[in-house]
Amino acid sequence: MTRAAPLYQLKAEFFKTLGHPVRIRVLELLSRREHAVSEMLAEIAVEPAHLSQQLAVLRRANLVVARREGSAVHYALTDPRVAELLAVARAILSGVLAGQAELLADLRAAGPESPPGPEPTPGG
């Protein structure tokens, strides 16, 4: 009897699938609406073979589904919650970047620090 992979392992595999910029960009486009491959090529600056390869990864992960219309192939998300996941990731990143921007502003406002050196001597 084979044992199912633990949920944390499945989650890790899921996030690994999302771990490529082209795949994220494809999912962002599909979060808005269905797209033909030709439309995606116009939006994403990659070679057709590379886009095809990334779409195949997303299909195998059941994140997107393809349908043929004449000679065009159209892709759509299999689950609208993928769009929600991308929106949550964006919100988290916005918070992180805002925190970093605040830290940078604080550092700049503090002004230049004098480099450490010898303590001044009394009367010197």
Rank of each mutant, 00 (worst) to 15 (best):
A4Q: 05
Q9Y: 09
Q9A: 14
L10Y: 04
F14I: 03
K16G: 11
K16S: 14
T17A: 12
R23N: 04
R25L: 09
E28T: 05
R33S: 12
E34Q: 12
L41R: 05
A42P: 00
P48K: 09
L51K: 08
L51V: 06
Q53K: 14
V57G: 03
L58P: 03
L58K: 00
R59H: 10
R60V: 08
R60T: 11
A61D: 09
N62V: 09
R67G: 03
R67L: 01
D79H: 10
D79A: 04
D79L: 06
L85C: 06
A91F: 09
L93H: 07
L93F: 06
L93G: 02
S94G: 08
G95P: 02
L97Q: 13
L103K: 06
L104W: 08
A105Q: 10
A105K: 09
D106K: 06
D106Y: 00
L107D: 01
L107A: 06
L107I: 04
A110S: 07
P112L: 14
P112M: 11
S114E: 13
S114N: 10
P116Y: 06
P116N: 03
P116F: 07
P118H: 03
E119R: 07
P120I: 00
P120W: 01
T121V: 02
P122E: 06
G123D: 07
G124A: 00
G124S: 01
